[in-house]
Simulated scan of single mutants.
Amino acid sequence: MAIKIMICDDEMDILDVTGMILEDAGYEVIAVSDSLKAEEVFKNEMPDLLLIDLWMPGISGDKIIASLKTNNDFENVPMIVLSASDTARQIAMGCGAVDFIAKPYDIDNLLGVLNNHLHN
């Protein structure tokens, strides 16, 4: 069974490209562009890792992470923020994210960070 990664980003280009990269690397990808549906999709799909943008219309990624982390079923699921904002790193670490990847990202770095958190 493939490792399941959920990507949540309101930028369709980022969602599509990141999804293709992860699928090519052998991951099963769940792509969500609507932050208002992200928590529900996460709970239904139970991914092995969440990769989420911080600044989205509706609900911000830090609020989604903080909410999911209150559920004991999800406390061990790595949640990683993917953002273009320099100030996002501190916010990401403060909400319970395990790591931060800056956009635009290097593909090898992205895969390395994910691999580190999935196989540690």
Rank of each mutant, 00 (worst) to 15 (best):
A2I: 08
A2H: 13
A2R: 15
I3P: 13
I3K: 14
I7V: 10
D9E: 03
D10A: 07
M12S: 14
D13Q: 15
I14S: 04
I14M: 09
L15N: 09
L15I: 08
G19A: 00
L22F: 12
E23A: 06
A25N: 09
G26C: 09
Y27I: 14
S33Q: 00
L36D: 13
K37A: 10
K37D: 12
A38I: 00
E39R: 08
N44G: 06
E45I: 14
P47G: 11
D48A: 11
L50H: 05
L50M: 06
L51S: 09
L51H: 00
D53F: 01
D53Q: 02
L54Q: 00
L54F: 07
P57V: 02
I59R: 00
I59G: 00
I59P: 01
S60A: 15
G61Y: 02
I65P: 04
S67I: 04
T70S: 11
D73G: 12
F74H: 01
E75S: 11
I80H: 02
A88H: 05
R89H: 13
C95Q: 06
V98N: 00
D99A: 02
D99Q: 04
F100N: 05
K103D: 09
P104V: 07
Y105F: 12
D106I: 09
I107W: 05
L110Q: 05
V113P: 01
L114H: 00
L114I: 07
N116D: 09
H119Y: 09
